[in-house]
């Protein structure tokens, strides 16, 4: 009797993705997340008349910054912790942790990003559809995906439920307020005033800030009065959407790698 061959990377990844999808059907975090998206999607309809076209992006920006990002993080965390009891069995499979994690992360990111379209559907149906709204929706999807995978990574690194929750919320606060407050605090430093590009870099690297700048200055076309703020700042504001795509892709990759390292650490432990 011959040994069964080790399944390929794709086979394992596909199976893991399917399992992720099935398990999320019963995940109360996903249900809450979807409800949140639906509610946030209807917010722009509170904008009267012609304001809908220009106001939807601003509503969605705030919803993503203050609610959807946290919800996606918690969804990722719950996804990581959902396998707590089966983890030993899962990582003992001959295909290794990589394909399984790839499938799981891809399914999670896809699920969260796709569901983010709920943010723009009500405004689009109500007549506020535009390329700018699509850009906002795409950005929201990307940021949601990054947050979900970041939550996944936190979940693999901090396996305890309570500590994982605390770490996730701390990460969210750091991403949401930390960069801004830090940069606000050091904006008066003479060296940074002479080198504004250095000051701008951390802001660019933060996906939440990158999304905010994209919505404000690309989608909403708020007339930024600081185009002469420095070469990097000027480039960023005029190519905000391109940069958002790049930074979201980078963070998706980084979060996936962090999750993989976290999962491997468990293996070694």
């Amino acid at each position: 009797m011959s040994a069964r061959p080790i399944p390929s990377f794709l086979q394992v990844a596909r199976a893991a993705a399917r399992r992720e999808w099935l398990s999320h059907r019963l995940n109360r975090f996903l249900h809450a997340h979807v409800l949140l998206l639906v509610a946030a999607g209807f917010l722009p309809l509170l904008t009267p008349g012609e304001g809908l076209m220009s106001g939807a992006g601003y509503w969605i920006l705030h919803a993503v910054l203050y609610a959807v990002s946290l919800s996606a993080l918690l969804l990722g965390l719950s996804s990581a912790h959902a396998e707590a009891e089966e983890f030993s069995w899962l990582i003992g499979q001959p295909a290794g942790i990589g394909p399984w994690l790839a499938g799981k992360a891809a399914a999670l990111a896809l699920l969260v990003s796709t569901s983010a379209s709920l943010l723009i559907v009500p405004a689009a149906v109500a007549g506020g559809g535009s390329r700018e709204l699509l850009l906002v929706g795409a950005g929201a999807a990307g940021v949601s995906g990054v947050c979900a995978l970041a939550g996944l990574a936190v979940g693999f690194w901090v396996r305890d439920g309570v500590r994982g929750l605390i770490a996730t919320i701390a990460l969210w606060f750091a991403a949401l307020f930390g960069t801004d407050l830090l940069l606000l605090g050091i904006a008066g430093v003479p060296v940074l005033q002479q080198h504004p590009d250095v000051w701008v870099l951390p802001l660019m690297a933060n996906p939440l800030d990158a999304f905010r700048v994209t919505v404000l200055f690309s989608a909403e076309r708020a007339a930024f009065s600081g185009l002469d703020a420095g070469r990097l700042a000027g480039w960023w504001v005029t190519h905000a959407a391109v940069w958002l795509g790049a930074v979201v892709s980078s963070w998706l990759l980084a979060a996936a790698v962090a999750a993989w390292l976290g999962a491997r650490r468990r293996t070694d432990g």
Binding site: L61, L65, Y66, L176, F177, G178, T179, D180, L181, L183, L184, A187, G188, Q193, P196, W199, V200, L203, L208, D209, R212, V213, L216, A222, F224, S225, G226, L227, D228, A229, G230, A233, W236, V237
Partner: peptide, 21 residues
């Protein structure tokens, strides 16, 4: 006055940190 001396500060417009303060 940073708007004049350090225009890059405008990139923090409507940021959660600025809103919090």
């Amino acid at each position: 006055g940073w708007r004049r001396t350090f225009p890059a500060i405008g990139l923090l417009s409507a940021s959660p940190g600025e809103q919090l303060v």
